[in-house]
């Protein structure tokens, strides 16, 4: 039986690296297994696909302006949808904590632990 949270750390790392900008990507905060699965099922559909307007996972330059708005503002955009981004980012399973973790991961927020 294969479940999505068995998606390997290697796959997740590949998503991060492949979609990151050329500038050096810092190690992102860690996601738990559930959040890894939610990321792969939902966020990667747009945030790991170049050329459609969504900031790519780990692309610090693309996320810089968005991070400047503050995490609460980003969270509102995720939940309610904004421009091309659908409400909840497709993730009906996500809690507010999940969304915060996913935003930080995709924006390349450093893991301070």
């Amino acid at each position: 039986m294969q479940r999505p949270w068995h998606a390997s750390a290697a796959l997740l790392a590949a998503v991060f690296v492949a979609s990151a900008a050329q500038e050096s990507a810092r190690p992102p905060i860690a996601l738990n297994a559930r959040q890894e699965a939610l990321l792969l099922a939902n966020c990667t559909q747009c945030h790991a696909r170049p050329g459609i307007g969504a900031p790519l996972i780990g692309d610090a330059a693309a996320w810089k302006e968005r991070r400047y708005q503050g995490e609460d503002r980003l969270l509102e955009h995720v939940v309610l949808g904004v421009r091309g981004m659908p409400p909840l980012g497709y993730c009906s399973a996500c809690t507010e904590d999940d969304f915060r973790a996913l935003i930080r991961y995709m924006a390349g927020v450093e893991d301070k632990n």
Partner: peptide, 24 residues
């Protein structure tokens, strides 16, 4: 298109409150 007009959300949501469910 990443520049589609902004649409009014069908519900209010305040950070820290309950998370609504909204379709695509």
């Amino acid at each position: 298109c990443s520049r589609e007009p902004d649409m009014r959300a069908p519900v209010d949501y305040r950070v820290g409150g309950r998370v609504p469910w909204i379709n695509w």
